[in-house]
Structures are given as structure tokens and as C-alpha cells.
């Protein structure tokens, strides 16, 4: 066991862990951040997706020792109080889920996509989606949600730009 300092959602947490422990189990079991889900344990399904220094990352195959000092963002960081992040709101508006288990991973993947690609093409969306699986088969709605979110965030950005 060793002591690690993890910066999660803007706050430092001191945790005792083996360097090889998975970030996902630490987030869920030690920090109580259960928004990130365990699906496959091999970085394939995307249910555990978080952002590390803004980059889309599979937390189930990320070792704690590798992320000390980096900025880790989970789905819990998105909403400001009761106000949902535009991507979360878009998923709600599009009813882009059934059981909801893959949703937080889908939302985080969308946040990462739109950060770098505010105006994604169908192809860009499909590429992201191919790495996040939904067994309920809600893909058409998820694509719709991603488009709505992109639109919404572009509109918001323009408004802010206009005020400058």
C-alpha cells in the first residue's frame, strides 16, 4: 500500500492504494463516486469513461499510480447544483437511454468529443459511439442527443462571444 494524492473533480483526495489498483474501483469504493460504472473490466465497453487532463480515459484499466497529480473528472463534476450540463440535458431531452447503465460513460465520451470537435460530423459521432456500447440498443437516440448537445453548446458559446 502507498499513499496517493488524486485530484478528482477539482478536489485533492489522499488515498491508500496499490499502484496497480484500478482507478474505477478507487473512485467507486473509496471516494463513493458511483457514476462511473463497471462493465467489462478491459477498457472495451466505455461504461467507466472519465476524463483525465481532458482526455477520454477508461478508468477500469487505468492504474492509480499512473494518474497521481492529474486532473480527473467524473460524471459527478458536470452538473452545477440542479443545473445539468448541456450534454446531460440533451440526453434527457432525447430520452437517449433505457436501463441507463452506459449513460454516464456515453455522456463523458460526448463531453470529450465536443471539447475538441464542437461541430462533429456523423462520422466523428460514429467513431466515438463505436467505443461505447449500449445493449439496450438506444444508439439512434444517443446520436440525436450528441447532435442536440453540440447545437446547444455552439449556441451558448456564440452568445458568450457576442457579449464580449
Amino acid at each position: 500500500m502507498a499513499r496517493h494524492v488524486l485530484r478528482v473533480n477539482g478536489k485533492d483526495h489522499e488515498v491508500d492504494a496499490e499502484p496497480g489498483d484500478s482507478l474505477l474501483s478507487l473512485l467507486r469504493d473509496d471516494l463513493g463516486l458511483t457514476g462511473s460504472k463497471f462493465g467489462c473490466g478491459e477498457g472495451f465497453c466505455g461504461a467507466c469513461t472519465v476524463l483525465i487532463d481532458g482526455q477520454l480515459t477508461r478508468s477500469c484499466v487505468t492504474r492509480v499510480g499512473a494518474v497521481a497529480g492529474k486532473a480527473i473528472a467524473t460524471v459527478e463534476s458536470l452538473a452545477a447544483g440542479d443545473r445539468l450540463h448541456p450534454v446531460q440535458q440533451a440526453f434527457l431531452d432525447a430520452e437517449a437511454f433505457q436501463c441507463g447503465y452506459c449513460t454516464s460513460g456515453m455522456v463523458m465520451a460526448t463531453v470529450a468529443l465536443l471539447k475538441n470537435t464542437p461541430n462533429p460530423t456523423e462520422q466523428d459521432i460514429a467513431r466515438v459511439m463505436d467505443r461505447n456500447v449500449c445493449r439496450c440498443g438506444t444508439y439512434p437516440r444517443i446520436v440525436d442527443a450528441i447532435k442536440r448537445a453540440a447545437q446547444q453548446m455552439r449556441t451558448t458559446t456564440t452568445a458568450v462571444g457576442g457579449q464580449r
Partner: peptide, 17 residues
Amino acid sequence: AQMTNYIMPTSMDLPEI
């Protein structure tokens, strides 16, 4: 018995339904 070799369809594999 893994998602990497038991293949289920993702959005890339599905048409508009």
C-alpha cells in the same frame, strides 16, 4: 467470455431502424 471476442453490434453495425 469477453466483450472483446464475443461481438455484439455497436452503432457502426446498425442501420437506421
